[in-house]
Amino acid sequence: MDSQSVNAVGSTVRKTEAEGDALVVMELIQRLKVRDVMTRNLVTLSRSATLREAQLLMRENHISGIPIAENGRLYGIVSIDDIIQALDGGYISEKCVSRMSTHLIVLEEDMPVSFALGFFENYKYGRFPVLSKDRALVGIVSQRDISRVMLYELTQEINRLERQHTRAPEDRVGEGAQLYMLREFPVVKYDFENAGKAANEIKRLLREQGVAARLTRRIAVAAYELEINICVHSNGGTLSFVISNGVAEVVARDTGPGIENVEWACRDGTSTANEWIRSLGFGAGMGLANTKRVADKFDISSTLGKGTTVYAAFRLDGAEK
């Protein structure tokens, strides 16, 4: 089989951060995997089948394409176009293998649905075969499959949001397991006008999602401290915020200059900030210690001249630290 590298294609998929797109949909197409939307009930033909057999099978099953596969191995696809051409050219009784397309573009079952949507946008095909990690044919995806599942999931999501609105905040703990979120915020050195905005936004999002108040505050505190750290101490960087699998992660990455003594920097009350920074209400030397204090998991790595990455994670299952 001559399948194109999926990763290379995947990178052409538009960014899920695109502004103006509905948040719920963005999250959904990240959270849902191809395996969640694909048709598993495969109608396939073996390599010995003729185009005529394919034509009959398509009519019987009301489908427009049939994978040619044996024992889970995919050899090609015969589409309704191939059948029309065969009827036209008078070779309908030939074997499928001689006319099927072997230049296949495939999806993998654990890719997010956003990849599949990107494929449909970038290629003219009406369906893509789905392979497992070990390259076995496990399903097929059409745009209709995606619409059907999306519609179902969106209805569920709307119901959930409606329930959430009518319920006390305490009851919402534990629902975090279904949440998916991804945000990235650029942070500019010494840009005190905008510093803190990302943390404010993260807090707003968490509140909106009904995450418990105390947990929301802990995450927001970490986000704020790390955002200010990038602004005050680094040459600039990004603050990213991810929720998946019931865990919220705040990650601060900067492009330098790096920390000479990480252990010292994490100690409460130590700071390299100058008087100007302190006059702005920062540089108390508590930032990293504060972050460590509120996080369930904390990690920092730094390379002099390269940059620093700080990682803080929080369980959303409601267990208090």
Binding site: F192, E193, A195, G196, A213, V221, Y224, E225, I228, R278, L280, G281, F282, A284, G285, M286, G287, N290, R293
Partner: peptide, 24 residues
């Protein structure tokens, strides 16, 4: 007046008295 100090406080409905006249 130090923001990290404020973030350290674990209480609800804080009234913040500060000399820091800034967005922060």
């Amino acid at each position: 007046d130090l923001m990290s100090d404020v973030l350290l406080v674990d209480a609800d409905d804080i009234l913040l008295l500060t000399s820091l006249a800034s967005d922060q």
